[in-house]
Structure formats: C-alpha cells, structure tokens
Design a protein around this nucleic acid. Structure first.
Lengths: 224, 224
DNA sequence: GTAAAATTAGACGCCATTGTCTAAAACGTC
DNA sequence: GACGTTTTAGACAATGGCGTCTAATTTTAC
C-alpha cells in the first residue's frame, strides 16, 4: 500500500479482474463462485479478499474496469468520424464495421450488455452509467455528425437524434443473433451487415441523385 | 393424476409458473430460491416439488410456458398483416405499434430475451428454440409480406430478408433502452417510434412519388 | 359421509459458498 | 542475508438453499 508495491499488485489485480469478469458474465452475480474466480486467476482465495473486501466489491470493480475500457474504446472510435462527404457511403460503412467490431460485438461490449440486463435491477446506477456513457455518447456524437453532414447538403434529415438511433439500429440489424449469443462475426459478415445498413440509411437520408453506383471497394481489411 | 383432478392442479400449477417466472427473471436461475417462489405463489414448497421434480424441471417448464404464450401471440400477430397497399404507411405503423406492444415490450417478450441472454449458454436449445420461433418466424413472415408488396409495386426491395431485419430493427430503434430495462412505453412513445420507423423504411424502400403527406390519422387507440 | 388424493408446515441432512483466521512459504528490498 | 510484505493452502464457523421426509390438514371424488 506504500506505492512501491503497486506494480506487483497490478498483475494480480488484473488477473483477478479478468477472471472475475468471465465468471460473472457466464454465471451471473449469484452463480459466480469466488473459488472458481480464484482458480481461473491462478490466485488464492485470500488474495481476492485481500484486494476486494467482499464479493460485491469485486463485482463493482469488475464492472468499473470493463466500463472504463469500453469508454476509452468508444472515445477513440468517435474521433475517427468521416468529416468530408466525398466518399460518404464507404466512410460510413467503414465506421459501422469498426463500431460493430470494437464496441458492439467485442468481449467488453457483450459483457456490459449482458451484465446490465442481468443485474441492472439490482444495481440501477450500473444501468444508468452504461446508458449514458455507451449508447448515449454514441448517438449524441452521431447526431452531431449528421447535423454537420446535413448542413453541407450531403444528407437530408429532419430529426438528427432519430436518424442517429436508426443508424445504430440498422448497423446491428443483421447481427442481432450473433451479438446476443455468438462470438465475433467474420469479416465478411461484418462488411455485409455494414453495407446493408449504410445503403438503406443513405436511401432514406441521402441526397437524391447521389447514389454511388461504384463497385464495392476493398474494405475487408479495415480493422482498427 | 387420473385426469379428473387436472383442473384442480391447474390453478396451482399456473400460480407456481407465474411466480417462478418472476423470480427466475429477476434473480436468474442460480439466484432464484424455491422458497421465494413458493411464498410468491402462496404455495408450500413441497407442492412445487410435487409438480416439478427439481429446480431445473421447474425452470424448463416456466420457459416452455412463457414461450408457448409468446408464440401464440406472435402467430395471432402475423395473421393481421396489411394485405392491400392502399394505406401502406398507416398499416405498417399500426402493425409496428402492435408488434412492439404485444411481442417486444410486453412481459413475456422481455422475460424471454432476458432469460435467453442469462441462461442461453447453459441451455443452448433454449436459445435456438427462441430464435427460431421468435425472430425467425417474424422475419420470415415479414420477408414474405414485403415480397408480395414488392410484386404489387408498392415497395422496391432487392433483398427481402435484409429488409425484414431492418424493418424490425427500425421498429425498435427508439425503444432500445425502454425494452432493455424499463416498463411498457406509453402510447405516445409507441406511436412515435412506429411512425419514425415506417417513415424511414418507406423512404428507403417505398415507391418513389408515393410519399403520403396526409396528416397523421388516429392510431393511438390501436391496441390488440 | 367416506376414502383417496393433494396440500401444508416444519424438521432434517446435505452440500456449496462466503468470509475469517492462521501458519507457512514466496517475494522484494535494502 | 535479514526484514517486511504479500501470497498461499487449508481449516473453520456460519449461512443458506436444495431436496426429502413425515404427520396433520384440506380438498376432491363418489
């Protein structure tokens, strides 16, 4: 606790948090066993109780940790918006692909949605925090982006917030089942889903006569 | 067990199933206590073990029961499709409203989604069954509907399955948070969400020049 | 009214888990 | 190499839930 030992503790702490996240996510709070977490973390049970007073403390620490990572990821995501409207369809498609890959379908994203749904009633602030920092920030940023693009004349939108929510919904339309239960979709699935979403979005909100009949360029390698 | 007594058992069974559904949904399988279920059902614990061999048996019975109700509701829902394209926007809006009210935001719908996400890994057939009988049947029926409407020239769609998934996604776009955690949205919210969804859907897939500029008619009373 | 079936309350054994405690071992630092 | 800290393995009591059993009571069928 003197500061010198924090690096040593850090490895254990992260190991515990990682294992606990997995067990909590699979078994829920009630079903998760401290012994199982300790075993998965290759750590003695006492060490867990040493770092976190009780099961509840560990749980909120896990949620906080995952939420911090997810927030950072979303933040870095939102700083890569397309700003010029030259290749709007391709840019939006690439954005949807990365959003789905790095925020929706990834480990942390699924963990948070599952946890929020499982334990949201028991921890209301967990739900609120997730909603504000996750979907809230995303739709706010998208709304601002669409306002800029509409101002430039690249999109025709009456309600930016509605358009933002619909954009997100369309982006997930083809992945609902994969997101709910499966693992990470393949690159092909991700691209197809993004293309379908953006195409429909632009048919609804794009400037008429701006449809791009260009052949689909190489997008499959966009990963980060 | 002789058949004569089934009516008497029926009341207890339903009471148990109802209480168990609530407790399982709130606490998850591991966190649910038989005693709590018995208390909520105003039934002795032994009666539960009399009807259902063990906790697991009760759980699958609960899921089966809710799923049967939800399937029946969806089936009755799918038999009320708009068939003529005269008032397509209003008809689709009314359909989305009823779908959201009776299948998505209602008690059974939220129960199933929550249970599937909580216990889907432990009971893979639960997830599969829900997927096929719920979202699967819905998108299949919508796809067929859109094919008919496209054949009539009322819609212009290249991929009916994609359009069906997008239609469902748009229908939920404004309700994601409510659906995930809150209760039943108000009539106003339901109508606004449905209007937004159908308007965007028709902007993307509607016959050009068929936009209805008519003032919104009375739809708020459509309930069942 | 009577007999059979169902329900109840409560006690019980069993097991898993939580959280504490202790003594030994490993680790890092000087 | 010595010392303080951290970690470990295991024992431990306490708790709570599951599933069983029994004896009494209620409901149902005829």
């Amino acid at each position: 606790m003197t500061g010198h030992t924090q690096r040593g503790q850090c490895a254990k702490r992260m190991s515990i948090l990682e294992a606990a996240a997995e067990v909590f996510c699979n078994q829920g709070f009630a079903g998760a066993s401290i012994d199982e977490i300790a075993a998965k973390a290759c750590v003695s049970r006492q060490t867990i109780y040493n770092h976190y007073r009780e099961k509840e403390t560990l749980f909120v620490a896990v949620v906080e940790d995952v939420m911090n990572r997810a927030n950072a990821m979303l933040f870095s995501m939102l700083s890569t918006f397309p700003d010029n409207a030259d290749n709007l369809e391709d840019d939006l498609t690439a954005f949807v692909m990365r959003l789905n890959r790095n925020c929706i379908c990834n480990h942390d994203g699924k963990f948070l949605r599952k946890l929020v749904q499982m334990e949201g009633e028991r921890y209301p602030h967990l739900f609120e925090s997730w909603r504000q920092h996750g979907p809230g920030k995303l739709t706010t940023a998208l709304s601002a982006l669409f306002a800029r693009l509409a101002h430039k004349g690249a999109l025709i939108i009456d309600d930016f917030d509605v358009a933002a929510r619909q954009f997100v919904a369309l982006g997930n339309a083809d992945l609902q089942m994969t997101v709910l239960f499966g693992g990470m979709p393949s690159d092909g699935e991700l691209e197809k889903a993004a293309r379908n979403a953006v195409r429909t979005f632009l048919k609804a909100y794009g400037r008429p006569g701006a449809e791009q009949a260009s052949p689909p360029p190489q997008l499959a390698t966009v990963s980060g």
